[in-house]
Design a protein around this nucleic acid. Structure first.
Lengths: 344, 344
DNA sequence: CCATTGTAGGACGTTTTATGTCCCGGGCAT
DNA sequence: ATGCCCGGGACATAAAACGTCCTACAATGG
């Protein structure tokens, strides 16, 4: 049932927009009874001419009628609207969610895939596909793309494909090695992405839990510096978002730090930074690479994360206000919306 | 499931064409392995440029990849094709049927609605809707439209709506009263259609079973003659198709005639004529109005009939070869196809 | 009864998009 | 080496979409 729509979305991405547009035109006419073109246009926030095109079309189809006194819905149109109800709900519940989140957090583009990554591996894959599609959309010639690690990022890498527009791209890890299992480290992800797309990559081999002295000498290393410079001049960042405590445990953060994280109300982790509910940074991992202040200069920041359990964390990061694009799933999106009111 | 597609078809009629086009492109690329643009274009019977547009688009979506050696399908594309299989089958089973019938009987446009009018009143309504849509499509300014009676025609009338393009239309009954219940007589249908569309209408009050003398004096009547002239100069004919024996009974044809009909192998009735399996006229009702030979001059002949039981009858009429447009339902269409081989 | 407001639909120039038609440089197999 | 087919760039043209304005007409309220 729903998969029909998903497939159509893949094959004809703007189909949903058209469908929504026509639906809302009919809907507005239905509730207005008899209404004129200009009135309708302003109420739908369309230009008169565009609306007119659609209206002529819908009239052609016999879905609405018009005479000198205005337009009104026809019987077939009314029937169609009724039949469409469930489809619209199914198809655009997510779209509406996307719009709500985009508006609530001032993000330019929100993409929601149906399902819950926590419970369905398929949803997680879908999240990867959507993330890859989003990246493909924003990528341009010879871009530098900084990526983080994590299972979601790994899925994105899996779903990238050879593309001439990515030929000259350079993939780099956003920050030094963040001690996860090898196949989910940022380094690995960057290299997979590069291989999949035909782009290049550079790695940052900076172990976690480094002593201050070793750290200082490492960041003096010219090769490392070159990569760090590349990272800091990237145009696109793609990163995952995690629950603060989960990430802390995974990175084997010592109990003192864990305690202070908890005390500071750390909820979310992204790019090595920990955020509280209000989106404030309460802690940061001591490693090299992209700094939070670099994000302001980065043109496209794409956050990708899903699963009901991560909803709150995602909301925290969004509240920090650096994201341009969010790719998430339905379960997380619903959670995020719960925290719109709470946090503000 | 299927109704999603039906609804979308109503709202976006060319959606199916686009979907089919993109599907067959991907399908061709899949089976071809690696293939070039020009080769593919000729094999798909598209111009190079149009194919190129689609291919660029599909590439954008990550559904196919291309390098200097040619284009091949991507993993997502392959997956999508697989997922689409059932949808395509469902959506285009009917389209294929439409094409097959159109080709087999040399009809320019065949429209099939899903279901069986014999068993589902909803399908019958849908048939009416489709018939009305077809008529709306062909109608032009100030056309004369000749219509027959029957329950299907009544449904069409019900589904017509006010339309400026039909403002000047003149609806006339194709033939004199054919003794059915009042609300399904051609006269009634014509008047309803005129009222629904805002057009005009003329009626033909010619009773059945008229004596020769009365008949002669009637057709001398100037008013009758005026209408008959209008009928014979119509540009569009919309007519139902019936089973010969059913129609004979409904019209209370005497038993002699019924016998000779049976003896002559009469299978179908349309416009007051009876046809055998090969499409030959074996009998005609003695009344005034449109004659079969007038049809050659008529620009658009639209036949509308559905239901499994009428399949054979429809095939007979089609074989006579005067139809330009056929609107039917799935059950009838399947029956019609059975008789393609048999009759030829 | 009339003025005002809102309506559809026609018209037209402009902009954007789609399309047909070449061409070019590059792999690849012969 | 050579010829063939490949993707992709380029460009003129046809077609569609669009913004904008205008006109005649219906309805409504004074």
């Amino acid at each position: 049932m729903r998969e029909i729509l998903d497939i159509q979305k893949q094959l004809m991405p703007d189909l949903m927009d058209i469908m929504k547009k026509r639906y809302s035109i009919l809907q507005h006419i239905l509730v207005s009874g008899v209404v004129g073109r200009r009135t309708l246009a302003s109420s739908l926030d369309m230009t008169e001419r565009v609306l007119r095109g659609e209206v002529d079309f819908l009239k052609e189809l016999g879905l609405l009628e018009s005479d000198a006194s205005g337009m009104k819905i026809s019987e077939s149109g009314r029937q169609l609207l009724e039949d469409m109800q469930p489809i619209i709900k199914m198809a655009f519940g997510l779209t509406d969610l996307e719009d709500s989140i985009a508006k609530a957090f001032h993000i330019s583009n929100v993409i929601i895939v149906p399902g819950d990554s926590d419970t369905s591996v398929f949803t997680k894959k879908e999240l990867g596909r959507a993330g890859a599609a989003a990246l493909r959309k924003y990528i341009a010639k010879d871009d530098i793309i900084a990526v983080t690690g994590g299972s979601t990022m790994a899925q994105i890498a899996n779903n990238l494909a050879l593309s001439s527009s990515m030929k000259g791209s350079l993939f780099v890890p956003a920050r030094g090695g963040l001690g996860e299992s090898v196949d989910m480290q940022a380094n690995t992800i960057a290299s997979i992405m590069a291989k999949k797309t035909g782009g290049k990559y550079r790695l940052l081999h900076v172990p976690d839990h480094l002593g201050e002295e070793a750290y200082q000498s490492l960041i003096q290393d010219p090769q490392i510096q070159e990569v760090v410079n590349a990272v800091r001049s990237c145009r696109i960042v793609v990163h995952g978002i995690g629950d603060a405590m989960v990430m802390a445990r995974r990175r084997k953060v010592d109990s003192d730090t864990t305690g202070s994280l908890r005390a500071d109300g750390a909820l979310a982790e992204a790019l090595g930074y920990y955020f509280d509910r209000q989106g404030n940074v309460v802690h940061k991992m001591p490693t090299v690479g992209l700094r939070l202040e670099d994000l302001q200069r980065v043109e496209v920041v794409i956050g990708v994360a899903g699963g009901k359990s991560k909803g709150e964390a995602i909301a925290s990061v969004l509240r920090h206000g650096q994201e341009d694009v969010l790719v998430t799933d339905e379960a997380a999106a619903l959670e995020i919306m719960k925290h719109v009111q709470v946090g503000s």
